[in-house]
Amino acid sequence: MNERLKLLRKALKLNQQEFADKIQVNRSTVAGYERGSTNLSERTITDICRVFYVNEDWLRAGEGDMFRARNTTNEELALQVGKLLKTDDEFTKNLFLEYLKLPPEMKTLFEDFVHNLAKSK
């Protein structure tokens, strides 16, 4: 698994520090994983697969493709809501809540506004 982890990091074009930051471990821990002197915990394997869309079968046993398909809309929504709940971004939380409370016709107007805003970039 240590060799596949190194292959993954290089495929992502990340140095050890950048990789470590994304999975919230120390750079020296990533170095230990890659050398094979430190075993990956179940939690770390889960984090790597979640953060980088890695196929867990590939990471563990070298089976299948390195990456899995990106999240479905529902999975992505769950992931983003989970991240939002961990922040103190009250504006975004309130915006999300107020949107969900809108009647259908107001949601349509809001969606049109957001699409037009995105096009104007």
Rank of each mutant, 00 (worst) to 15 (best):
V25A: 02
Q16C: 09
D65K: 13
T92M: 11
I23W: 01
T29P: 00
R43E: 08
Q24G: 11
T46G: 13
L77W: 03
M106E: 03
L5R: 09
K86V: 00
N39K: 15
W58A: 08
F67Y: 11
T38R: 15
R43I: 08
T72W: 08
R27S: 03
L102E: 03
W58H: 13
N26D: 09
V114W: 04
Q24S: 12
D57Q: 12
I23D: 05
N39P: 06
L77C: 06
T38Y: 10
A69E: 09
R70L: 09
R60G: 07
Y99P: 00
L14I: 07
V54W: 02
V25F: 13
A11F: 00
L85P: 04
N71T: 06
L5W: 11
L109S: 03
E75D: 07
K86D: 00
L102K: 04
G64Q: 10
G62C: 02
M106L: 08
L100V: 04
K83W: 09
I48E: 06
A61D: 15
V51L: 07
Q16F: 14
N55R: 10
K10W: 11
A69R: 14
L79Q: 02
R27L: 00
L102S: 03
S37E: 12
K101P: 03
Y99L: 02
D112P: 02
R9T: 05
Q80K: 07
L59M: 07
R9E: 00
T46M: 15
A69S: 12
D47C: 10
M66A: 07
T72Y: 11
M66G: 09
R9A: 02
T46C: 12
Y53S: 13
R43K: 14
E34A: 04
D47F: 05
V81N: 04
N15A: 14
S37F: 14
S28K: 13
N116I: 03
L95R: 07
L100K: 07
D57R: 15
E76G: 04
N94F: 01
L117E: 03
Q17T: 15
L84K: 11
T92E: 05
A20T: 09
R27V: 01
V114D: 02
R60E: 11
L12E: 00
Y33V: 13
S41G: 05
Q16A: 07
E90S: 04
E56L: 14
D112I: 05
N15Y: 15
F91K: 11
V51E: 11
L117C: 02
R43G: 01
K101C: 06
S28M: 10
L77A: 08
V51C: 10
C49W: 02
T73H: 07
V54M: 01
H115C: 03
V25G: 02
N39S: 14
